[in-house]
């Protein structure tokens, strides 16, 4: 099947700075694709190239089988976009903005806007200058989804949204995927995309570091787990537990594990010692992937 997004050697320079350095990327139609990387990795640059807001320095790019540069309006009619840094005109209400955008797109949204506004508890009738960041972002989410585009390009979509709204957002992404739409989701943290994406690509310094299915990637993800006991056992007791990369005692009465892969063996190993509390943190992407993949380029 034809790809939703196909990039070959995609390169973007801003003066002397290299934002994208020969990116190869294939996103299948109907797929929810997570695009993850630390800030400044080139995620937003890639996204803005997809929409022809930027022009590539080199390489080729095809979106929904079209060339963003030459088929711009035809392509963008089929795309919904939520920018990471969303700036909306302060004087307009959400309803006015969404009405304008529907008119430019030439679509009649019927009750779709109100339906989405109700789901997200979005206020469409106050000027956007009066809305909080999170409430403005809800308008942005509605703008991206309302016309049921074939491709959704969402840059750091849940930033500023409260947990309940994030949950609703994930449901909306799944619905879009169930309807056969493609979702391209970027984030600087894996956590934001791991619940929704089928596959994930990790970008660093303008290059793709790793691309895999989310479950396969999570299985290889290294994270820190700290367990508290009433009386801490010796760290040596866990040194040979599968998946445990390193282990050390932390004061008071705790043990900190660096864990890779599934957590089952570790949980079984600590259970006899009567753990009181367990806290797992996802290390940042640099630590999680780049160390794991031999430091990437760095």
């Amino acid at each position: 099947m034809e790809s939703a997004i196909s990039a070959r050697g995609l390169t973007k320079h801003f003066g002397a700075a290299v934002a994208l350095d020969g990116l190869d990327l294939e996103v299948a139609r109907g797929e929810v694709f997570g695009f993850v990387g630390p800030n400044g990795a080139g995620k937003t640059t890639t996204i803005r190239l997809l929409l022809d807001l930027l022009r590539p320095t080199g390489g080729s790019l095809s979106v929904l089988g079209l060339d963003p540069r030459h088929d711009g309006p035809t392509l963008r009619r089929r795309v919904g976009y939520l920018p990471g840094d969303l700036n909306l005109p302060a004087r307009l209400t959400g309803r006015q903005l969404l009405g304008d955008h529907a008119a430019v797109r030439g679509v009649d949204l019927g009750g779709r806007v109100d339906e989405l506004a109700e789901r997200f508890d979005a206020d469409l009738d106050r000027s956007m200058g009066e809305l909080s960041l999170g409430n403005r972002r809800k308008i942005g989410v509605i703008d991206a989804f309302a016309h049921r585009p074939d491709l959704l390009v969402l840059d750091e979509p849940t930033g500023g949204l409260d947990p309940l709204v994030q949950q609703e957002f994930r449901a909306l992404v799944r619905e879009a995927a169930d309807e056969g739409r493609t979702v391209f989701l970027s984030s600087h943290v894996l956590d934001e995309v791991q619940h929704t994406a089928d596959r994930v690509a990790v970008l660093r310094a303008g290059r793709l570091v790793v691309e895999d299915r989310v479950d396969a990637l999570l299985a290889r993800l290294r994270r820190a787990v700290t367990v508290r006991f009433s009386t801490a056992p010796s760290p040596q007791a866990f040194a040979t537990v599968p998946g445990v990369v390193s282990v050390q005692a932390v004061e008071p009465d705790g043990v900190r594990f660096e864990l890779e892969g599934v957590a089952g063996p570790l949980l079984a190993a600590i259970a006899p010692y009567g753990p009181l509390d367990l806290h797992a943190t996802e290390p940042d992407l640099e630590d999680a992937f780049l160390g794991f993949y031999g430091g990437g380029r760095g």
Binding site: Y81, P83, D85, N87, R105, G106
Partner: peptide, 15 residues
């Protein structure tokens, strides 16, 4: 400059 055209330029309209 203020990013207010980002969503407009992403619409199906030529620059």
């Amino acid at each position: 400059e203020r990013g207010l055209l980002e969503t407009s330029f992403a619409l199906p309209i030529r620059r």
